[in-house]
Design a protein around this nucleic acid. Structure first.
Length: 574
RNA sequence: CGGGAUGUAGCGCAGUCUGGUUAGCGCGUUUGACUGGGGGUCAAAAGGUCGGAGGUUCGAAUCCUCUCAUCCCGACCA
C-alpha cells in the first residue's frame, strides 16, 4: 500500500477526548475514528489488525471443531421473551419497533438466537456435541462508554456456543476452549494476560473464567499472588486471613449518641475500626432482607453474598425496609433480630474475632464485647469479605498484589439456563427428550486490539506484534527525487510484494524526520529506509520497531533477507 | 442515573470573567520556491451556523434561560 493514498491521516496532537494510551494512539495513528460516544469507524490500518486477530481466532475455533455461522444483529423481541431476558435486562439492551410495530432489539449477545438456530437444526444425541461461533457486531447501550475500543457501545465480538448431551462432555470441551483461548491471546501478542476464575453473575451457570489483559487502564481488578499461582478477580478472590481470638469480656451497653458510622463509633470509643462489627442490609428480589455482618474495616463482597444466599438479585436495603424488620439503621444489632424476619450472614472476620463493638438496635447505643460464639450462634458463617491488596494469598500466604485488567475474553458453563426455557432439546439414546447442556465463549475483538497496544508501545506509538501488525514492513523512501531513490524503493516494494510480504510504502517524499515519526506512530515491526546516503554504497537500512539502532543490508539481497526475517519471525511467534 | 468539565476552521487551543468594527493563534490542507536522516524555511491561498434554541441589549463567541453533544469520576455492566 502506498501511503500517499492511504485513508486515515496521522494526527500530531493528542485528541482532547482520549485519555488512555490505546485510545490516543489508535486515533493518532489512523486506526480508528470516533463517530459517536462508544461508536467508531475502523480505518484501513485498524481493519487490517482486526482481520488478523479474527484470523487467529478462526484458526483456533476451527481447531476445536467450531463451525462458523452468522446470526442477525437485529432480533425479534419474542425470542428474548422466551428466555426471560427481555424483562431481566435493563436499558443497555436497545429495543425498538419496526414499521409494523413489531418489537425488535439489537442483540448484545446471541444465546437466544443460537438456541433458535440449534433447536431447529439439531434433535438427536448423534448430532452432539457441537459448537458454532460467529464474529459479529454487538450493540450494548452502555451508560458510560469509555477509553475508545475498551468499552464501546458497538463492538465486534467473537461469540461461540457449544451444545452437549451431558455435563461431563461440556466439562471436557470447556477445558479445550480454555486452552484455545490461552493460545489465541498468546498468538495475538498479549504479553501479560491471565486466566482467572470469575463469577458467572447474571449469565448463570456454575463455572466461568475471564481472560484479563493486565493494564493500568483496565476496569477490572485482579488479585495475583507474587508467584502467580493464585489469580482471581475482585468478585471471587479469597484471602487466608488469620484472626486472633482473645478472652471474652462481658457484653456491655454503651451510649454512642449520634455516632452512626463505623468511623464515628470507633473514634468515639477510642477503638480501631477492626474492633467493630459492621451491619449491612441487603434486600432480595423477593423482598426478603439479609443482614450481613462484617468486621468494621472490611467491605462486603456482594457477589460472594449472592452466591451464598443463592440470590441473583441483591440491592442495598432502604431505611424503610430496615425499620420494618425491626432494626434501627445505624445502630442495627445482630443480637435482637428475629431470624424469621431476616436472614443473618456473618463473615469469618466477625465470627473469629473477639470483643467487637456492634449496634444495640437502639438509637444512640452500641454493645461492647460482642463475641459471636457466645452471643449469636444461630447464624450462617461464610466468607463474604472483599479482598484487599496485601491480604494473604489463599495458596501461598504471601501478600496478594492488586492489578488492573481488561477483560478480553470470558467463557461460561451455562448448563440449561437458556436451553431449558427455549426448548432447545434433543432425544437421547433412550428416546427421551432432554435439554442440551450449553457453554458459551466470548472474545472482544476491538478490545483485544486496544489491549495489545496498551501492553506494547513506547512514547512514539504502538509496537505491534508481527502476528497482528497491519503490515510487516514500513518502507520509507527518502529524497525520492534524487539519484534513483524512487526507482530503488519502487523495486524493493515490488520485490517484497512478490514474495508475499505486506508492505506499507511511504512514497510521499516528506522530510526524513516527518516520515520516521509517522512510521513510529504506525508501529509496523520492520522499517526499511531507502535514501541517497546508503544507496551510494548499494545498501538500505533495516530497523526493528521498538529496538535500538539499525543495520544496513545489501540492496540486491534486501528483499530476500527481509522476507526471510518476516516469515521466520511469524513462524516463531505462532 | 448522580457528580464534574468542555463545546470557537480538519485537529489542538486563545478570546468569554469586564459585551463594542472585518473572531485570532499553532498544526494540518492547497500552490510555488528552496531544503533533504528524527515533525525544516519563505511566500501566497482556501477553510467559521463561535454546539443548538430562546431571551437581555443600540450591539452577544462573551450576559441569562433551556437544550444537545462529548469526555472524566461514580453507580450500573451479557
Amino acid at each position: 500500500m502506498r501511503m500517499s493514498k492511504l485513508v486515515g491521516r496521522k494526527i500530531k496532537e493528542d485528541p482532547k477526548d482520549a485519555v488512555t494510551t490505546s485510545h490516543k494512539f489508535l486515533i493518532r495513528g489512523g486506526y480508528i475514528r470516533p463517530v459517536s460516544a462508544g461508536i467508531h469507524s475502523l480505518l484501513p490500518l485498524g481493519k487490517r489488525i482486526v482481520r488478523k486477530i479474527e484470523a487467529i481466532i478462526r484458526e483456533e475455533m476451527d481447531a476445536v471443531e467450531g463451525q462458523e455461522v452468522l446470526m442477525p444483529v437485529v432480533l425479534p423481541a419474542e425470542l428474548w421473551v422466551e428466555s426471560g431476558r427481555l424483562e431481566s435486562i435493563g436499558s443497555e439492551l436497545l429495543r425498538f419497533k419496526d414499521r409494523n410495530d413489531k418489537n425488535m432489539l439489537l442483540a448484545m449477545t446471541h444465546e437466544e438466537a443460537v438456541c433458535h438456530l440449534v433447536r431447529t437444526e439439531v434433535n438427536s444425541y448423534k448430532q452432539l456435541p457441537l459448537m458454532v461461533y460467529q464474529i459479529q457486531t454487538k450493540y450494548r447501550d452502555e451508560a458510560r462508554p469509555r477509553a475508545g475500543m475498551i468499552r464501546a457501545r458497538e463492538f465486534t465480538m467473537k461469540d461461540a456456543y457449544s451444545f452437549h448431551a451431558d455435563q461431563e462432555c461440556l466439562d471436557t470441551y470447556y477445558d479445550r476452549v480454555l486452552q484455545a483461548y490461552e493460545r489465541i491471546f498468546q498468538r495475538v501478542g498479549l504479553k501479560n494476560c491471565v486466566t482467572i476464575e470469575s463469577d458467572p453473575g447474571m449469565m448463570g451457570g456454575d463455572t466461568s473464567h475471564e481472560f484479563m489483559a493486565l493494564a493500568d487502564c483496565g476496569e477490572d481488578v485482579v488479585f495475583i499472588s507474587p508467584d502467580g499461582s493464585y489469580k482471581a478477580n475482585r468478585e471471587v478472590a479469597v484471602a487466608k486471613c488469620e484472626f486472633k481470638k482473645e478472652e471474652s469480656l462481658p457484653l456491655e451497653k454503651v451510649a454512642t449518641p449520634g455516632m452512626k458510622t463505623i468511623g464515628e463509633v470507633a473514634e468515639f470509643l477510642n477503638l480501631k475500626p477492626e474492633n467493630t462489627g459492621k451491619a449491612v442490609f441487603f434486600q432480595e428480589a423477593s423482598g426478603d432482607l439479609i443482614f450481613a455482618m462484617i468486621r468494621g474495616d472490611l467491605e462486603v463482597n456482594e457477589a460472594k453474598l449472592r452466591k451464598i444466599i443463592a440470590s441473583a438479585e441483591l440491592v442495598h436495603a432502604s431505611d424503610e425496609a430496615i425499620l420494618a424488620s425491626g432494626a434501627v439503621p445505624g445502630y442495627a444489632s445482630p443480637l435482637s433480630l428475629d431470624p424469621a424476619k431476616i436472614k443473618i450472614v456473618v463473615d469469618r472476620s466477625v465470627a473469629e474475632c473477639s470483643n467487637l463493638v456492634v449496634g444495640a438496635n437502639e438509637s444512640g447505643c452500641h454493645y461492647k464485647n460482642f463475641n459471636f460464639d457466645r452471643d449469636l450462634s444461630d447464624a450462617q458463617v461464610a466468607d463474604i469479605a472483599m479482598v484487599r491488596e496485601g491480604d494473604p494469598c489463599p495458596l501461598t500466604g504471601e501478600p496478594l498484589k492488586m492489578r488492573r485488567g481488561i477483560e478480553v475474553g470470558n467463557i461460561f458453563k451455562l448448563g440449561t439456563k437458556y436451553s431449558a426455557p427455549m426448548n432447545c432439546s434433543f432425544l437421547d439414546q433412550n428416546g427421551k427428550s432432554r435439554n442440551m447442556i450449553m457453554g458459551c465463549y466470548g472474545i472482544g475483538v476491538g478490545r483485544t486490539m486496544a489491549s495489545v497496544l496498551e501492553q506494547s508501545h513506547d512514547k512514539w506509538g504502538p509496537i505491534w506484534p508481527i502476528s497482528i501488525a497491519p503490515y510487516h514492513v514500513h518502507l520509507c523512501s527518502l529524497n525520492p527525487k534524487k539519484e534513483g531513490v524512487a526507482a530503488a524503493a519502487d523495486k524493493i516494494y515490488a520485490d517484497l510484494l512478490e514474495k508475499g510480504v505486506e508492505v506499507l510504502y511511504d512514497d510521499r517524499g516528506e522530510k526524513a524526520g516527518f516520515m520516521f515519526n509517522d512510521a513510529d506512530l504506525t508501529g509496523i515491526p520492520y522499517r526499511l529506509t531507502v535514501s541517497p546516503k546508503t544507496l551510494s554504497s548499494s545498501q538500505i537500512e533495516l530497523k526493528t520497531r521498538g529496538a535500538e539502532g539499525s543495520s544496513v543490508i545489501d540492496l540486491d539481497a534486501a528483499a530476500t533477507i527481509v522476507a526471510n526475517t518476516v516469515f521466520d519471525t511469524l513462524k516463531k511467534k505462532s
